[in-house]
């Protein structure tokens, strides 16, 4: 008995080369499991990689360092500033309420640490497969170029969420360990209960993760341009740095509203009551627009690309 005896033979060894209708039917009927299979494989690829564990571990350290610094080396006390939602507002609140460490850590990681890790994962997504030669085997499998791109993008977005949640979870644990927990004073002056504050923390984490969507799409596009993953990663991180520099030049203020980082700090609005949604929605809209533009560019590029590696 040969090993192939155990295999289903219908529709695969079709006697003639014509496409049998049985093939076409199974093609449509199993739409969901099909994507699930490759998606599950993609998530395993992203999260089994030792590098991903190292980056998530590094991100988990951000709240630890911030918490220890505030607990043992902060002399400013708990000045309650109403402020405009910047990092320092959260930082000053932390010593009074551990939950604020979640907000402070996300605010501290969003400008650079989070984008850096997203740049690595997104830049590597297609270029890494091309560099390793696995791209040709995926396409011959045949994964389909559009399907592969969608799965890769979904994988990067999942990493964005995982990275944000890693910081949030670590910050929650460190905050609870080092600081008192209780009702949370909002930036507008009122207080809300721990339970409602926890919901807002979840919303904030989602909002931060969503802020990374535009960058993920840029990284995906850059990744389709090259077969050198390090170049794609460096370019994507470089985009973040250039954007930060542009933001720092007041003469270019006309350009600022079009930058994908412009409304990143809008998640602070979720700590006001009532929540002003304008900036948050502008941020989400901007991320969606960047995802559409660079996603389409990545699709066009990957579809016409000759795979020579």
């Amino acid at each position: 008995m040969s090993p192939t005896d155990a295999l289903p033979k219908t529709g695969v060894l079709s006697p003639a080369f014509g496409h049998s209708t049985a093939d076409a039917e199974s093609f449509g009927a199993e739409r969901l499991p099909r994507l699930r299979g490759l998606m599950r494989s993609e998530l395993r690829l992203v999260f089994l990689r030792p590098r991903t564990a190292a980056m998530l571990g590094f991100l988990a350290l951000v709240p630890v360092l911030l918490g220890v610094a505030l607990r043992y080396f902060h002399d400013g006390g708990s000045s309650r500033g109403g402020g405009d939602g910047g990092t320092m507002d959260f930082v000053n609140q932390v010593t009074g309420n551990g939950l604020f460490l979640v907000f402070a850590s996300l605010a501290a990681a969003l400008p650079f640490f989070l984008p850096m890790t997203v740049g690595v994962v997104a830049g590597d997504s297609i270029a890494g497969e091309a560099h390793g030669g696995t791209l040709r085997y995926l396409l011959v499998a045949p994964a389909g170029r559009t399907r592969l791109l969608l799965v890769k993008f979904a994988g990067v977005l999942t990493f964005c969420l995982a990275a944000t949640l890693t910081i949030a979870m670590s910050a929650l644990a460190v905050g609870a360990a080092l600081f008192p927990m209780g009702d949370v004073p909002l930036l507008t002056g009122d207080s809300i209960s721990m339970v409602e504050a926890s919901w807002r923390a979840v919303l904030i984490a989602l909002c931060v993760a969503a802020s990374l969507v535009g960058l993920a799409a840029i990284g995906l596009f850059v990744s389709t341009l090259t077969t050198v993953p390090v170049a794609a990663m460096a370019t994507t991180v470089g985009v973040v740095i250039v954007t930060a520099i542009l933001t720092g030049i007041p003469q270019l203020s006309g350009l600022h509203p079009w930058l994908f980082t412009d409304a990143w700090m809008s998640f602070g609005d979720l700590l006001r009551d009532p929540i002003p949604t304008g900036e948050i929605l502008r941020n989400l809209g901007m991320q969606a627009a960047y995802a559409a533009v660079f996603g389409a560019a990545a699709w066009a590029r990957l579809n016409e690309r000759d795979i020579t590696t």
């Binding site: 289903p8 199974s26 490759l38 599950r40 690829l45 030792p50 696995t134 995926l138 045949p142 399907r147």
Partner: peptide
């Protein structure tokens, strides 16, 4: 060409999952 950090079986599993018509 393979993913070095995946096992031989995981490598094949991924390529098979990449084929949308495989069961």
């Amino acid at each position: 060409a393979h993913y070095g950090f995946l096992t031989g079986r995981q490598n094949l599993d991924r390529l098979d999952a990449a084929d949308p018509t495989s069961d």
